[in-house]
Design a protein around this nucleic acid. Structure first.
Lengths: 250, 250
DNA sequence: AACTCCATGTAGACGTGTCTACCATATCTA
DNA sequence: TAGATATGGTAGACACGTCTACATGGAGTT
């Protein structure tokens, strides 16, 4: 099977068809053959949905598909499938092993991106791995990232060896303020969200993230909601939420 | 505008509708109002395609849309739109500023992922930023990553301060072999792809990446193609390609 | 040989999201 | 005030990918 001389770019498959190709690739690799039933099961669709897809892939010359015969990849199809599969693997590794996203979610996110990741994007992720693998600092920092309590637990303070060094760069806990402590009329820059679970998610969904600049508009006379402004629009925040947002006053 | 008490999860929009929401969000923010024509232009579709989408969003209570009136977001719609927009921004920053993907591609990749990124995934990317911002090592290593010639140029050897340190962890250039030098029957682990451009892309598309284990099956008697085996399947590689693959013999 | 079972295949429907072609309305200008 | 122009809206078509309900074929069983 020659892999040269043909370009993969010529064929532009839909996401669905790419998924079928990837599924067939895995089935052929594991079981030597792919059946309609297995494909349907793997993709969680009905057999009847598989058949028109197989017909289209067959017309494109990517699979061999004769009625009631087993399905296999053509050499061209193998190239296409391998490409998608490689992207899936790379993304899964990146999301899981570098970013620490639990496997289940890493898989899901990889599925979403594998179809549309640009060549540039893929290349840079590979380079990221190359860097991690080649540069001693790279490996060290990823190890530190993965053990840092900031990232991996819900403790608010980084414990362990890096605790002291944190203070060099970042305002010490004493200097650090929460968004709640910022007075109306003042601005600040978000460092970290200490909230967890639903609170954290809600804060992130609003767009409050590390690096974002926030202006405090006013605090309700009643005390509780405070109004903040950022990225050109204004919204209200419960004090309970604002307490969990660590900021750097300006 | 209150942001509490309502869950965003209840509404599950299609990718297309999420894109419309995001577009409307940006238009309203920048121009105070959104018109069919502007939405169509921003999304690069015909006006006729926008109208049924607006009708559906309006029925869901996410936008105010009366025939021939300007379009605005409802409070519920603003929450949904802000959430999508926040994800888009976060992903763009991550792809561009951390991974170094050029802006144009970072945008494109962010668009692909923003609709389906899991909450877990988003959370871990945020934690990554928090780590970078809080841990001195984090910031340093990203700076190094971005200036490392391994990542940013096509030089084969990392120049600058880290050149010597590389040797501690990684086989020195003398010990390091290319895949071409591996004899049939031997295995190796891929460290890096030195090839650039089309060659690099083709190698990556095959699934040859850092960290992958490869077994050399045989070399053609004619000399040129060599056959390798990895991840359960076998394929052929030009020597010209194999030369660019740096490996760690086992 | 007839029967049974199950994988495979067919037909027709549906929802989504786009398009083209044409129609309606409003706003500006002569 | 009447037409020109641009914006918004309608109707109908189409591709895609899924579904349900039903038909077909083949392999083993009685």
């Amino acid at each position: 099977m020659e892999l040269h001389d043909t370009t993969l770019k010529s064929i532009q498959l839909s996401e669905s068809l790419e998924d079928y190709m990837e599924t067939i690739f895995e089935l052929v690799r594991d079981n030597k053959l792919a059946r309609i039933k297995d494909i349907a099961k793997a993709r969680d669709v009905r057999s009847a949905s598989v058949i028109p897809a197989m017909r289209r892939l067959s017309e494109m010359g990517l699979i061999t598909y004769e009625k009631r015969e087993y399905i296999d990849l053509t050499p061209a199809g193998e190239r296409v499938a391998r490409r998608v599969y490689a992207r899936h693997r790379l993304l899964t590794r990146f999301f899981r092993d570098i970013l620490g996203i639990p496997n289940e979610f890493a898989q899901k996110d990889a599925c979403a991106l594998e179809h549309s990741l640009s060549d540039e994007g893929m290349d840079h992720i590979v380079r990221f791995f190359e860097f991690i693998q080649s540069c001693p600092e790279g490996g060290d920092v990823i190890a530190r990232l993965q053990t840092c309590s900031l990232v991996n637990s819900d403790k608010k303070q980084c414990t362990g060896g890096c605790a002291i060094r944190h203070k060099e760069h970042v305002p010490s806990p004493a200097q650090m303020k929460t968004l709640r402590q910022i007075k109306p009329g003042e601005s600040c820059n978000i460092i970290r969200i200490n909230g967890t679970g639903a609170i954290r998610q809600r804060i992130l969904d609003m767009g409050l993230m590390p690096g974002i600049n926030v202006y405090v508009e006013r605090v309700s006379p009643a005390g509780d909601p405070m109004w903040i402004k950022f990225q050109g629009s204004q919204l209200s925040l419960r004090l309970k939420e604002a307490e969990t947002v660590l900021v750097n006053p300006e």
